[in-house]
Nucleic acid binder design. Structure first.
Lengths: 134, 134
DNA sequence: GGCTGTCGATTACATTTGTAATCTGAATGC
DNA sequence: GCATTCAGATTACAAATGTAATCGACAGCC
């Protein structure tokens, strides 16, 4: 890569999303596009935030290149640029990497030990494994 | 809770451990107790840190109540006060909670999809499941 | 057409985190 | 005993994060 691309740090999803920002993303993954006010309806109730807080988080997410804006009259509609599954995958792998040296089995063992696995989970995991082995 | 307990924020493990701090904990979980210099031997190489950085992180971990110190001549020996498995369990559950609404199965599904599961992992997970069902 | 409310944008500010330099006091070498 | 050295402690400081107030512009009401 000789010539650096003009768009400075704009690869969608490259930036790290903080926990507060994640709450906002979650709202937008649930439904999009939404206005800032709509997002606030959801997250302000959940987290006890005020409107300005949500505005800030939205701005930062736009800056980070993970939200797209389109004008709608005088306000903006916000849409995620990265899929939830991509984010979730990245975060999961990051954790497995950091805590279990990349091996997923110990993770499961820990969850099992912590009784974080319901019988339903177990059944579903078995189903998944069966499918993977096909 | 009428009367607040006297010990101000001293419950071991209640505090959040940052990622840099985690690297230090990891070294001490590997072997303990260790002096600051010994910890540095490990992590400074891994992360390109300098001694003062390690000192700071150690101090913060002591403050947070997750490391214990015992004097050894003129230096300190540092020992973890929380078990690695406890930390790992907390972090795992936090992630599962945040990303999958507490259900572990979708986590596994994501790891599977991301090919983060080796055949060994799969075998071991099956073994775990079998054991849990007993 | 001016007032008011409503947007997004800008600015603010405390806390946490990452990374480190400097200070201070005790041990050690001579 | 006194200088040197080597601990931990204190201080520093920029970036990221959490949380929000304020500003400036435009839309709609009267």
């Amino acid at each position: 890569m000789a010539t650096k691309p003009a768009s400075e740090g704009a690869e969608a999803g490259a930036e790290r999303i903080s926990e507060a920002e994640h709450a906002v993303m979650e709202a937008l993954w649930q439904r999009s596009p939404q206005t800032a006010a709509e997002v606030c309806d959801t997250v302000c109730a959940e987290r006890g935030w005020s409107m300005p807080t949500v505005k800030t988080l939205l701005s930062r997410l736009v800056q980070k290149g993970v939200l797209d804006t389109q004008p709608d009259g005088r306000r903006f509609l916000y849409t995620p640029l990265i899929a939830r599954s991509a984010y979730v995958g990245t975060e999961s792998r990051r954790l497995v990497e950091r805590l279990f040296g990349g091996r997923a089995a110990p993770l499961l063992a820990h969850l099992a030990e912590a009784e974080a696995l319901t019988p339903d989970d177990i059944a579903e995991i078995e189903r998944l494994l069966a499918e993977m082995k096909k």
